[in-house]
Structure formats: C-alpha cells, structure tokens
Design a protein around this nucleic acid. Structure first.
Lengths: 301, 301
DNA sequence: AATGAAAATCTCTTTTTCAGAATTTGGATG
DNA sequence: CATCCAAATTCTGAAAAAGAGATTTTCATT
C-alpha cells in the first residue's frame, strides 16, 4: 500500500472511471487499472464493482475511501509540519476565474487552516496576463491553463515567457462548449446553431482554444462577458454557445441539463519564477497537489 | 513519501543506527541510507543529525516521527477495516517465551482492540515443538526462531517440517550470551570463566545455537531453566552464562549492566500451515508486521 | 447485430530499487 | 599520534517494478 496508489484509488473512486482518473493523475489508463488491481490484491478485498463500464465502490471500497482520504490528509500535514522555516508574510497568487471558482475554495480553506500567518493575496485574470505578472514579479505564482501548440504558435511571446517560468500541472480540466438547452448534438463548429461564442477576455486560454476550434469550420464572432455566470446566462438566451471547463459547469447547478461538446482536456499549471521562491510558495504548492484528487470534507485526519 | 520509506525511517529512528535498522527491516544498509536521503529530499528537511556514527533525530525528525507512527497506525487500521470477512472465533497461537515477553505485549494489545471477538489462545513452547504442533493442527500458527544451517543439519525432521509450512520473518533478534557482571570480554567460548550455559528446553533454537557455538571451543554443560528470569538469576550467581535475545535482556532492567557477547541476528518467523488458514490469521499476521518497527504507544492515529 | 467507448491484457521500454563492493568517516585503542 | 575497527556513505551493476502504447475484450447503445 503506497501513497501514490492511494491517490490513484481516490481519483478512480471520485470519477468512477479509470479513463478519467488516468487523466486526472497524469497517467495512462492501463497503469491505473494495474495499480487498482495491485491495491485490491494487497488488501485482499475487492474495492470496485465492475458492472459494465462503471467503476463503483463496493462496501469495502467505501470504507477504504474514508481511510484513503485520512491518510492523504495526514501525509500532507506531516509534510507541512516538518517544513524547516515556517511560511509567513504575503503570498501573491494569480488565478483564472474558473480555477478560483471550482478548485480553490477547498485548497484555500486547507491552506488557511495550516498557515494562518500567511496572508494570501488573490488576483483574478487571464492566463496570458497572469504569466506576465509572475515574470514581472507582480505575482509570486499563478494558476494558468497550459496553452496547446496551436495557441503557442500564435503567440510566441507567451510561449517564451512560459519557457522562462517553472511550472507544474496541478489539475486537469475538461474544456466544454456549452450549448443552449434543446440544441442538437454537434460534431464540429459547423453544426453550431448559435450566433456567437460567449467567453471571457482575449488573454483567456480557454477562449483561444475555443476560437481556434470554431474558426476551422465557421466564422463565429466572440461575445465577451465578465464572468461564467454571465456566460451561462447568455447561453440560456439560446443565441450563444459558452466556453468553460466541466468543473465550473458542474458547480453551477443549472436548472436544466445543457448539451455540451468536449474540446478535450486542458492542464492547469502552477507557474512561478524559477528562483527566489518564498517559503510560502512550496507550502501552497503542496496543498494544491494534495487537493488534486481529494475530497476536502474529509480532510480532518 | 511512501509507506515503506516510513517504515525504514521508523526503524532508523528507534535504533539510531542504519546498520541495525537495515537488519530489522530486512534490507542492506546502503539501501536504508538511500531511502532516508530520498525521504529527506522529498520533505525538504533534514531528519537526522549525523554527528559521528550516531543517527539522532533533528527537531523536524522528531516531528515527523510522530506523524510516521500515526500514518503506519492508520494504514494498519485501513487494512483491517476492509477485511471482507470479519475474523472471529479462536486463534491458537504458539510462541517462544522470549517473543511473548518482548514483542507480543504491544501486538496483542493492538489486536485485541481491533478484534475483540477473536479469542486468542496463547501457548508457550520451544520452536521445535511449536512447529510440530502447527503441522499437526494443534496450533493455527506459531512464532519460532529460524534455525541456522548448523541446527537444521543436526535435525533433518525439523528441517522437513519447516519446509512444509508457510513462513514469514516478522522480527529480527540479536542473540546474546549474557555474562556475570565483572566477567572479562570474550571472543569465543574458550574465554568463558563459567561452569555452565543457562538456557531453556532442548527444543529451543536459541539454546541450540548457543550450544553449537560453545562446543566449538569448550565442553560446557547446559543447565536447563524454566524462564528467562531464572536464567538471569542464575547468571547473577556468577557461575553460568545465560542465553537470550537482546530485546529480552533490555526489558528486564537489571540493576547492573552485564557484559554480553553477540551470537548474531536470528529471525523470528511466523509459521502456519499452507492451506486452511483462518481469517483471524491474516489479521494477526498484519498486526505483527505493522508492529515490527513501531512504537505502539503512539498507535492511536 | 453493429458500433463505439471503456476497461483489461499484453508487451516492451524506462525507471527505480536493491545488493554488494569500494570508500570514507569518526571513534577507540594502543 | 598512528592504527584499527565499525558504521555510514558512495558507486556500480543486476533485478524488479512502473509506465506507455498497442491489442483485445466487454458491455452499453443504436
């Protein structure tokens, strides 16, 4: 039983899918399958019901799930407890809207409990701008979307800036096109029956990915909105298709279930300058990593 | 940070020596060194002070030590919690005197807390007899000393019986010759200034090892006693040399410190029949393994 | 029945772990 | 102060494990 198996187990348990879990933990599905089998072998118990293609927890799996969460929480706490110089002062964190909405609440709560003496300064912005701010030392670190090759080719400056930064994947998002309710399923942008794409600022990586995808087969204008709530409201009018990660859509429990189209997985990176990282940064980094695939409600060891 | 590193860390921390820890966890010292270095690297903190050849915990090491214990305890608890069929009924355990005295108290306490419904039936005896009882299904399992080659050659039946059993190393003992206080240090049995060796029954592996060692250079009679307390008392008379593992000597806080001679490490095996193992057996096995290198006083996660 | 997606299996490559030898270090002893 | 001894570390090659990718199987959906 090793902690990385437990992380994998938690991912499978919460996604109920080895494919998704594999993406979440940055591994290949065959590997996830194997690790789960090893874990079951080691514990001498069957953790998942494989009925059909769903992976649901067995009774024993449920039991182990709570222990797995406690183990991860305890490991994180141990890690933080041995930090030789206790973090303090201010940590300036930049983040995308989407991450702030979906992922940060749990992580920030945890971080505040552990390091009440660190004051976190949160700045919202587009990936493009956040990266520049980190490089200019206006931020200590930032959570941005990794731009795919197509975007990096369009914007060589951005690419160069990223090269100069230290980065690590902390989350993986499913980027979606959200369609008005009743809109037929689409294969490509050509099938869209809307007048515009609703997205955030121009520097937003998600927006760029969506625009790249859209201009392959249609010439759709982008209507710029200030928040994901605004985007969803705009979609509800029936005339636009929204761009947002699945995790954001999930937490906005919208009355009706909207048809969506997947644009594929996009990694969320934690970027920072290579040198001169404040002690609070590594603490923050660890908390984010631990939050990756874990249910924070169970975090009180 | 993986659980096997933590086990290694605990062994080094409690032995304050990588050589001893390596023996305790059944690995080679270079490996232990490497794993500790990896752990320190991973945590970004120095866990041990290497002043001279002592490995003492740093402040961070002390902190981590308590977390390491809690993590191991929690992992054990998780393991037990997912057992598909809860152990119950009676488990007949055979054990050597020495193991009963030094190692079992902690393990049995833990086991009782976890499985109050299992009634443990403890039988004391010599390794030779215990092995035979397990084979004859008079016991479910037994803790015996692994006889070295020399002993196995003397007793082919014993050897054959062991072959037929499933076995796993659970502890490693330092077998000692305990000399009367004031006795000069010895290199071999020829240096002994006593009239006899004090040991337990003839079937006792420790006794056989000592007798084999003694007859290489002298013709010492063995005086047979009923308990380790009796042996120590006999040593105190000045006329005998006692045979016992270091762990037993350590817990008998004798007023004076007695000179000792090391006969080398001897493994304690948990043996059982290969088939038909009751569900309580694996639970017991797990508890013993977890107890191996851990301080049970900290076991309440 | 055909299709498609997801999990499992298999195979090969890469990485990590481990053992054993060689080296270094520090303490003890003459 | 030199010598010896034991313990830790470093180094190197072999063995084991993890991981990726291709292939197969399985099961929902049409």
């Amino acid at each position: 039983m090793d902690l990385s198996s437990i992380e994998i187990f938690l991912a499978v348990a919460s996604d109920r899918s080895v494919t998704k879990a594999a993406r979440a933990v940055g591994r290949v599905p065959s590997n996830v399958t194997t690790r789960i089998q090893q874990l079951e072998e080691d514990l001498g118990a069957c953790l998942f019901c494989r009925d059909g293609k769903k992976m649901t927890l067995t009774r024993e799996g449920e039991t182990f799930f709570t222990y797995a969460n406690r183990l991860m929480a305890l490991a994180l706490e141990a890690r933080q407890a041995v930090r030789p110089l206790a973090p303090s002062g201010t940590l300036r964190v930049g983040t995308m809207e989407s991450t702030a909405a979906s992922r940060l609440p749990a992580a920030l709560t945890q971080f505040n409990q552990m390091w009440p003496d660190v004051s976190l300064q949160l700045t919202m912005g587009a990936s493009r701008d956040l990266a520049r701010d980190v490089l200019a030392d206006a931020l200590d670190c930032a959570l941005i979307a990794r731009p795919p090759k197509t975007v990096r080719q369009d914007d060589r400056d951005f690419d160069a800036e990223l090269e100069a930064l230290a980065m690590e994947t902390v989350f993986v998002e499913d980027l979606l096109i959200v369609l008005p309710s009743g809109h037929p399923a689409i294969k490509s942008a050509a099938d869209l029956r809307v007048g515009a794409l609703a997205a955030l600022e121009p520097g937003c990586t998600y927006r760029r990915i969506a625009e790249n995808w859209a201009r392959q087969s249609s010439a759709l204008p982008t209507s710029e909105l200030g928040s994901y709530h605004a985007i969803l409201a705009s979609v509800a009018t029936g005339n636009t298709a929204g761009v947002m990660p699945k995790s954001v859509l999930d937490l906005m429990h919208w009355p009706a279930v909207l048809p969506t189209h997947q644009l594929g997985p996009v990694e969320t990176l934690l970027v920072s300058r290579r040198d001169n990282r404040p002690s609070a940064f590594s603490a923050f980094h660890e908390v984010l990593s631990a939050t990756k695939s874990r249910d924070m409600r169970l975090a009180t060891n």
